[in-house]
Design a binder for these strands. Structure first.
Lengths: 251, 251
DNA sequence: TTTAGATTCATTCAAAAAAAATCAAAGAAA
DNA sequence: TTTCTTTGATTTTTTTTGAATGAATCTAAA
């Protein structure tokens, strides 16, 4: 069977059921787990489905209305990430000049954006395409595009940011710690984040509680540089160093 | 059996089933694997099907034509466009620094690119993503993103091009005329084209024969600025003004 | 909240499948 | 005949696949 045929079957199943597990697909396609995973990665990279832990979900299902079938079983972090994203989106005001960092956390924000008078700048390819498709004023930062990432990186990207003065910026992070601030494993992405955050009048970090007290090789900003939006603050000491916005599940 | 007969059978099977494997065709045509592969390569190069690992897919179901806005335009002259695109791609040499303009015509070029030592810069989102996915050195120009064409435009895009010196540039156009040169209906896209073409040591326009003797509101370059790659030159007078490369339906 | 155990995931590697390149034979054209 | 093209077989190279490993993530129980 051609790879293209497998893709079609996967997408067809997703269209009907909205979510599917890797095991389901192994049985439906009579192929190995490795192949299914590779197919999902390919389809995810080309934006035709959304890969989640345990399987995949249909791309058209937006996060606010998504059935918690798989996510309920696999933990509610997806739910909480959506809450954080919604809160972040609500902070955007009329005529804001907004920077949205590449990454899955910030990608969730796009579903909740309402402010059409604002201008949005991003280094995420998917972000830019979706923003434009939704009719927002969308700008993409120029620069190198690596195969693995969906983000524009490199010195051109850094230079391209020099003349922007964002009123608000929204970022993802891998680690947060008091001493090492916000950190990420990728040097090239870190540099872009540093430059972007430096051009934001107000910067927000979107981070669920699992990100706290973790340190990665590259620090891209000090803890005091940005307001943190999180679902749950377990370690109160962070309040001494920066503003924390806590979003709760209620209603 | 004549080669043309085999082509017809292959295309007919594809029309019905949308995808076909090499083995299927060996049985259907009662010929060797080598011949089937050669046939598929020929049909792929002339844009009549899309070759994939293990077989081929019909050109209309292939994901390269996924973008709905772009499919509409594709229609009739797909074959000629593929020939033009292949010729254009073959002009790229080692270590070239290549600009590829956004648009459907240039998008087809990507299927025929081989030169991995070259660096590719584009203002087309889809182009950039695919170049990166194929493992080429890919850069995207920064700027405003127009939803309908997935092209980056505006003054940022123009500025972002200031420091590039391309060895070769490939462009689409809506109209060609001796007096008005190469023209397009969209002012904002025209400005980007003008700037890009000015930074190319050598510029090529990819245009099928329907584009000649048409004039659109915005001229983005004079007729002498670029070499034209076309399928058929009906009006010989153009040869007096610039270089024309004519590609034919060879075998 | 922490910890242990179970899933799931990305990566690596070798085997299998497929594609491309090479070459000689058969046919067609000159 | 001689030359050129097409075809099929053979080989070399590339791509895909599936299994194995260890890392990461999730779940449940303490």
């Amino acid at each position: 069977m051609l790879a293209e045929n497998r893709y079609e079957i996967i997408l067809k199943i997703l269209e009907e059921k909205k979510t599917v597990t890797v095991l389901d697909l192994v049985q439906a396609l009579h192929t190995s787990e490795s192949t299914v995973r590779r197919d999902l990665t390919t389809l995810h990279n080309s934006g035709r489905l959304y890969k989640v832990y345990g399987g995949a979900t249909s791309i058209t299902t937006n996060y606010s209305t998504r059935e918690p079938d798989m996510t309920a079983k696999k933990g509610l972090s997806a739910r909480e990430k959506a809450l954080i994203a919604r809160k972040a989106a609500s902070l955007i005001a009329r005529n804001d000049f907004v920077y949205i960092d590449a990454g899955t956390t910030t990608l969730l924000m796009l579903d909740f954006l309402r402010e059409t008078s604002a201008t949005y700048v991003t280094n995420g390819i998917t972000h830019a395409v979706r923003l434009a498709a939704k009719g927002f004023h969308a700008y993409i930062i120029g620069g190198e595009l690596k195969a693995s990432t969906e983000a524009v990186i490199g010195s051109e990207a850094v230079n391209g940011m020099k003349f922007y003065n964002f009123t608000k910026g929204f970022f993802g992070t891998n680690g947060i710690s008091v001493k090492s601030g916000f950190s990420t494993p990728e040097p090239v992405e870190g540099i872009v984040k540093t430059e972007a955050i430096a051009h934001c009048k107000k910067a927000y970090i979107l981070a669920d509680d699992s990100k706290f007290n973790k340190i990665y090789p590259i620090t891209f900003a000090n803890i005091s540089c940005a307001t943190i939006i999180t679902n749950r603050l377990t370690d109160r000491k962070y309040r001494d160093y920066t503003t924390i916005i806590e979003v709760n599940e209620e209603k």
